[in-house]
Each structure stands twice: as C-alpha cells, then as structure tokens.
C-alpha cells in the first residue's frame, strides 16, 4: 500500500511488479495521461504541483480506505509533479484482488478520491501560450453513479 509523489517519469512496470501476489486472480491498473484537448482548447503541456507531505499521507489514507471497502489484496498509486508533455503519465494506480470485480471498483474509487481530495494542483498550458489553473471538476469521469455508496462525497 504505497502512495508517492515523484517529479520523475512514473516507471509503471516497476510499480506493477511490487503488487505481485500468488493469491491475486486479477490486476487492474489505471494511467491518467496528458491529453491534447481540454474543453475545446488545444493543450501544450500540464504543470502539476503538490503539497507533498499532506498529499502522501492523504494518498495512503485513501488507499487504506480502498482496501477496507473492497475485497482486494493490495493497492498502490503514484502521482507525478512538474511539467508534463502530451501523452505522459500523470498518475498511475494498481490494484490486485482475488477476483476482478472488486479490483476494478477499488481502482475506480482510488482515482476518484485522488482527484477529489489529494492536494495536487494542475495548470493547463495551451498551444496559444495562455495558461489556467484547473479547479476541481473531478466528478465527470467517475464510473460510479453520483448516488452510489462508494461515490465520493465532499463531506469530510
């Protein structure tokens, strides 16, 4: 159960090896990547920064919550900070479980929680030279319906 912030490219294959378990029938991973368009604007790169101490403690806490809520064996995540080019991996999450259903759900839970509560900030730099800090808007991509019990609630 490891959550870390790094300013280097995330070595997802190495991280994945840390999750090997002979009890696991399934491994699910998620990579969040820098995409070329955001709300109709052409993106040139993303700049991320974090409040590292709190980001890592909050990250470990949400991974523990994933292990408590779902029937999974282990979970880990890494978030990158600094300037990222198009296509680079900004966040990686890996989950191993005995069966696939809870591994998928735990992985989805982790990305929702990371977006909603870990102190990491993102500045979109556009092809036309403008730039903008992105505020929240974490809910749109969730696989959970907003009234599902595992959906993130902003009460904390």
């Amino acid at each position: 159960m490891l959550f870390s912030i790094t300013d280097h490219p995330i070595r997802t294959q190495k991280r994945k090896r840390d999750l090997e378990s002979l009890e696991a029938g399934g491994y699910v991973e998620f990579e969040g990547r820098v995409r070329k368009h955001s709300h109709g604007r052409e993106v040139q790169r993303l700049d991320y920064e974090s409040y590292q101490t709190l980001a890592e403690s909050e990250g470990r806490e949400l991974l523990q919550e994933a292990l408590d809520r779902f029937d999974v064996i282990d979970a880990a995540a890494v978030h990158r900070v600094g300037s990222l080019d198009l296509g680079e991996v900004a966040v990686w999450i890996g989950v191993v479980g005995v069966h696939r259903a809870d591994a998928f759900r735990a992985c989805a839970f982790c990305i929702d929680e990371i977006k909603a509560r870990v102190p990491i900030w993102k500045r979109e730099v556009y092809a036309n030279g403008e730039a903008e800090w992105i505020n929240g808007c974490s809910g749109h991509g969730s696989v959970f319906a907003s009234d599902e019990a595992v959906a993130h609630s902003h009460e904390s």
Partner: peptide, 10 residues
Amino acid sequence: VVFIPPVAGG
C-alpha cells in the same frame, strides 16, 4: 499553515 485551493490531481 497551508491554505488549500480546489485540488485537481489526476
């Protein structure tokens, strides 16, 4: 003390 604007990881 750290004031935390809306977060936007991922």
